[in-house]
Amino acid sequence: MTATVSIGEFARLTCLSVKTLRHYHDIELLEPVEIDTGSGYRRYSIDQVAQAHLIRRLRRLDMPLPEVKAVLAAPDDDVRHAALRAHLERMEAELERTRSVVASLRSLLTPSAPIAVEYRSIPAFSALALIEVVSRDDIGPWCQAAYPLLHQTLAAAGIEPDGVDGATYSMEFFENDLGEVVAYVPIPAAAAIEPHERVSVIELPARRFAIALHEGDFEDFDRTYGALGSHVAEHDTALAEPVRERYLLSPDDTDDPTAYRTEVCWPIGRL
């Protein structure tokens, strides 16, 4: 018969406090094998030690309790290992984001050179576009899905892009962290594309822009926006219209996850 121990002894075996063990019992994460009906004392099996150790490590990795429950309830090792791998991948992504923010914060401590601003008039052009209301938190995954869809649609129609990928961001996107975003790929004016439930052919209007080139980490994108917008405020009159971005290079094009090369186009006048 497997030995059982008191909750205090089990706390010593597992390095989990009695308070924590009681909480795990209450939420049905780690339940004692015996509860004395008279005293209410809990007893645990020594077979539960390994499970307790796993729970402790998962919590130290900030795995949410519902996910810990799912790992413990996994029907086999393959399902359990897949859940663990998914969480580790999320943690690695978060670690990379933290490193990026730290590097960006360090760069704020170093005086930056004045931003180089180019003025350019861009004529109207046709584009295949995906237009949706997107939150700031969702913009990364949304873009990662949008451009493959646009390019797949063009490839199916046998049409080559007529310029680099781009996007426009409405004022509401910046003001409310939620607003219309237009992901687009320029196409020849005479291109014929079958209607699609999510994409459409649009014409972007002719505009004059103040343009700055952002190179480097996405985490520093706000600095380019800040510097360019400040330049426009000092020297020009901004239109209350969507800012355009032109993606000359993205991390998808290289092995460098921080390799952004984007033209930020601030609308300053109509042609």
Rank of each mutant, 00 (worst) to 15 (best):
P111E: 02
I139A: 03
S121D: 13
V164A: 08
S170F: 08
S170A: 11
A155H: 11
E160M: 12
S135T: 13
Y119Q: 09
E94T: 14
L95C: 12
P148K: 10
R85G: 00
F125Q: 10
W142Q: 00
I115T: 04
D162T: 01
A129K: 00
V102P: 00
G158A: 14
G158T: 13
V181S: 04
L149N: 10
M91T: 11
R99P: 01
T153C: 08
L178T: 10
I115K: 01
R97G: 08
L150Q: 06
Q144S: 05
E160L: 09
T110L: 13
Y147R: 05
Q144E: 09
R136S: 07
A93S: 15
A129P: 02
L128G: 02
L108G: 12
G166C: 00
Q144C: 05
D165Y: 00
V182S: 06
P123K: 14
D137W: 09
L149F: 07
W142S: 04
L128Y: 07
S135C: 05
T110V: 15
G166H: 01
R106P: 04
T110F: 12
R97W: 14
A93R: 15
A113W: 00
M91K: 11
L154T: 08
G158V: 14
A124E: 08
A155Q: 14
H87P: 10
P148H: 11
P161V: 04
S170Y: 07
S100A: 15
D177T: 01
E160S: 10
E92S: 14
E160N: 08
D162I: 08
A113E: 08
V117C: 09
R136D: 10
G140P: 02
L105I: 13
L95K: 12
R136P: 02
R120M: 10
E92R: 15
I159K: 00
Y147A: 03
D165F: 02
G140Q: 04
A113V: 01
E118Y: 01
I122V: 15
G158P: 13
A103I: 07
T153D: 06
E180G: 06
I139C: 01
A113Q: 07
G163D: 03
R136C: 11
A157S: 04
V134K: 03
G166S: 02
A157C: 07
T168F: 09
D138E: 09
A156I: 07
A116D: 11
R120W: 07
R120S: 06
A116T: 14
H87L: 07
A156V: 05
I131G: 01
D138F: 03
E92A: 15
A86D: 10
S104M: 11
S126H: 10
S126V: 01
I122F: 07
H87M: 04
L95W: 13
E89T: 13
L154R: 05
Q152V: 08
P141D: 04
R97F: 14
V117Y: 06
T168N: 04
S107R: 15
